[in-house]
Every structure is written in C-alpha cells, then in structure tokens.
Design a protein around this nucleic acid. Structure first.
Lengths: 143, 143
DNA sequence: CAGTATCCCTTTTGATACTG
DNA sequence: CAGTATCAAAAGGGATACTG
C-alpha cells in the first residue's frame, strides 16, 4: 500500500491484478468527464425511459417526475452532444420533436439497467442500513 | 405510446415486456433516492478505489485527485450510512481509521465496474460525438 | 491522523416569462 | 409544442482554522 501502485484500482480482465485495465483517476481525465455526465440524476432516468421507445419532449417531461423544463432540455442536449440520444425535429406546426437512443445510447443503457436493477434489488438493505446508522447516531448523541 | 403503460420502462427479465420489473420514477421513490447517492461524483470513485483493499483516510485523500477533506468525509459518511462502506477506528495515537467495502458495497462495485469499463471503452466515440456536435453548432451559428 | 466547524464562493437548479 | 432567456434560490464544494 505504500509503493504507489495502489493508486489506481485495476479493472483487470485477466488473471493477474494490474495489467489490463488501470484506472486513471486524475480530476481532468476522460473517464471522469464522461462519468460525470453519465452519473447524473436526470441523464440516468432519461436513458432508462428511452429504452426501446421514442418519446416526445412533453412525454418525457410528464414521465420524469420532478424535472423542470429547463433541466430536461439541458439534459437532452448533453445526451445528444455525447451521441447517446438522437433528436429528430419534424417540421410541422405545432413542432414535434422526438428523442430516441442511438446505438451508443442503447449500449450504455444495458449497463445502466444493471445499475437500476441492483438498486431495486438492494433498496431494502440500504434502507435498513440507513435506519440503523441513524439510530446509532442518535444513541451516541444522547450519551 | 398513448396508453399510459409507457410511463415506466420495464426491466423485464422474462419474455414479455411488462411483467417482471416496472420502474417507479416518482421523485421520492426509493430507487431515485439510492440512485442519487450512487450517481455521485465522489462516491463512484471511492467505491472503485476500495476494490479489494482497505484504505486509510489520508490514502484516499491523496488518491482521489481533487477531493477536499470535507467532501471526502461527507462522501465516506454517506457510504457508511448506506451500508456500502465499513469504517474501522483503531484506538491509537495518532488515530488510524480504515475504510473497506462491505459485502453490499462489493456487489455494487461489480455493477459500477461495468459502468467504468463501458466509459473507458467508449470514450473515443463520445469524444468524437462531442466534436461533431460542437462543429455543427458553430456552423449553424455562422449562418 | 482524522476529522469538525465555519465562512464564502461557485455551480446547479427551479420558477417564471416569453417565442418560433 | 418545444423550446430560450433571465433571475433568484439552493446546493455543492473549497479554504481555513481548530480539536481529540
């Protein structure tokens, strides 16, 4: 632990622990830049919602509970910029704009899906852990 | 798309599309609460770093580039509260505090790992998409 | 060493009003 | 309908000083 090689965790796909994948954790690295986008509250929800379906702006707005018009716009633009979502504008009046996942977005969704499923599967454990933590904290505060 | 069942994406594990997993997207639902924690800048990094190793506070501070002492403390407390990280205090002078993943944390790390790997594998595509988007935007701004 | 407490600045987000 | 623009509120986060 004192030799400096422990700095980055290795996402090694092989047998040894430090060859294949070395994670760059610099604040300005690409992985961090992308993760900051992906690991975003609204992005995750939007990507999940666009699973195998095209949705209009207003549909998304109604479905993603709590999102403001502004944040939905911002989120969709970022996802579009990252090549995860395709935006199609139909030149009609009133305007009709549809959003759908790109192939890249679909591949990300596969990963996100497992995250959401993990969350669903473990929400009780987490909820219990929180209660227990809070209980102990309260107990400690009394004494 | 107009029948109301399209509201929640189905994370169906079976053959049909709406039975097994229905995602609750209410703003106050458990999944959202937990996802907000997981989808956090520092949490992801800390969990990844604690992969198969125990680390001291100062080690984490040095390794997670850019994190402040305050944010590291806050992040670790949240992870501990959620039952993802175990905090062990050794009653020595100077204090020695070690952090490690709990079994729950380890299982989450498996999922996060695939997210990080996805990011690494697709960073070039995303980078290209961003350049292309920005180029078109600039082009549109000129006209 | 491993924090906590405080202050303060910056970024993010939400509400509101307006537009092609 | 699907935005954009603007402003205000809130959260996030950094720097510093202090403590068991």
């Amino acid at each position: 632990m004192e030799d400096g090689t422990s700095k980055a965790p290795s996402y090694c796909t092989g047998t040894d622990a430090d060859q294949a994948r070395q994670w760059d954790v610099r604040a300005d690295c690409d992985v961090r830049n992308i993760l900051d986008r992906v690991a975003d509250k609204w992005s995750l929800l939007v990507i999940a919602l666009l699973d195998r379906q095209t949705m209009r702006f207003s549909e998304l707005r109604r479905t993603v509970d709590g999102v403001s018009q502004r944040m939905l716009t911002v989120t969709l633009r970022r996802l579009e910029r990252d090549g995860l979502v395709r935006r199609t504008v139909y030149p009609v009046v009133p305007p009709r704009v549809e959003y759908e996942l790109t192939p890249l977005g679909i591949s990300l969704h596969e990963v996100i899906k497992s995250l959401v499923i993990w969350t669903e599967d473990h929400q009780q454990e987490i909820s219990d852990a929180r209660s227990e933590f809070d209980r102990r904290e309260l107990e400690a505060a009394v004494s």
